[in-house]
C-alpha cells in the first residue's frame, strides 16, 4: 500500500458516500445518471468476484464489499425508492455502446484468457468509460448541483491518484500493468474539462455551468 493508492481509495469512498448522502438527504436523484450507476455496479460485480476466491487483506475485502453494496444501493435508490425524481429524459446515453465494446476488447486484449481475468479486464475497460453517461447528462442539462460536482471531483481524482500509485509501484516494486494504466489514463482524461470547470468555477462558489 502507498499514500497515492490510499488517498485514491479514500477519494473513491468519499465520492460514493457523497452521492448516497445527496440522494438520501435531498430524496432526489435529479442530475445524476442512473446509467452510470448501473455501469459502476457492473464494474464492481465483475471485478470483485475474487472476493470469494482470494483473501488479500481485511482492508481489501472490506472496501470491495463497501463499493459493491454502495453501487447497488445507489441503483436501488435511483430506480426504485426515488424513481419519480429520476431524470430519464436527459439520461439517454446508450449503455450497450460502452458494455459491448468493453467486453469484446477484454476478450481480445487481456493478460490471460480465463474467466476471472477476462471479467477483471472487462471491468477495467468499462470503468474507464462508465462516467460518460453522467458527463453526457451534465452537458445536456448544462449544469450540475455543487454536491454533484463534488461527487464527480472525488470520483475523477481517485483514478488520477491511482496513476500516481502505478508510477510509484513501477519504481518501488518494479512491476506495472499496462491494461490498468492505459484505461486509467483514458478514465482520468475524460474528467479533464470537468476538472477545469470545477476548479475555475465551483471552487469560487459559482454553480457548475457548462458553456451552452
Amino acid at each position: 500500500m502507498n499514500i497515492f493508492r490510499l488517498l485514491g481509495d479514500l477519494s473513491h469512498l468519499l465520492a460514493i458516500i457523497v452521492l448516497l448522502l445527496k440522494i438520501w438527504k435531498t430524496r432526489s436523484c435529479a442530475g445524476i445518471s442512473g446509467k452510470s450507476q448501473i455501469l459502476f455496479a457492473i464494474v464492481y460485480t465483475s471485478r470483485y468476484l475474487d472476493l470469494v476466491t482470494t483473501y488479500i487483506s481485511a482492508y481489501n475485502t472490506f472496501m470491495k464489499l463497501i463499493f459493491v453494496v454502495a453501487a447497488y444501493a445507489t441503483v436501488y435508490l435511483m430506480y426504485i425508492k426515488f424513481k419519480a425524481t429520476y431524470d430519464h429524459n436527459h439520461d439517454t446515453f446508450r449503455m450497450e455502446f460502452l458494455v459491448i465494446p468493453s467486453l469484446i476488447l477484454a476478450l481480445l486484449i487481456n493478460h490471460e484468457l480465463t474467466v476471472l481475468e477476462v471479467l477483471w479486464t472487462f471491468s477495467i475497460y468499462l470503468e474507464s468509460v462508465a462516467i460518460l453517461p453522467q458527463l453526457f447528462l451534465v452537458s445536456k442539462t448544462g449544469e450540475a448541483e455543487s454536491i454533484t460536482s463534488h461527487y464527480l471531483f472525488a470520483l475523477g481524482s481517485y483514478r488520477g491518484l491511482y496513476l500516481l500509485n502505478w508510477v510509484y509501484r513501477y519504481y518501488a516494486e518494479d512491476h506495472y500493468d499496462l491494461i490498468a494504466i492505459v484505461a486509467g489514463l483514458v478514465q482520468t482524461v475524460l474528467y479533464c474539462d470537468f476538472f477545469y470547470l470545477y476548479i475555475t468555477k465551483v471552487l469560487k462558489g459559482k454553480k457548475l455551468q457548462l458553456p451552452a
Binding site: 493508492r5 481509495d9 473513491h12 475474487d50 482470494t54 488479500i56 487483506s57 481489501n60 472496501m63 470491495k64 463499493f67 493478460h111 490471460e112 477483471w120 491511482y162 500509485n165 512491476h175 506495472y176 500493468d177 490498468a180
Partner: peptide
Amino acid sequence: SYKNVPKDEL
C-alpha cells in the same frame, strides 16, 4: 512477465 503483478488493488 505479467505473472508478477499482484492483483491487490481495488
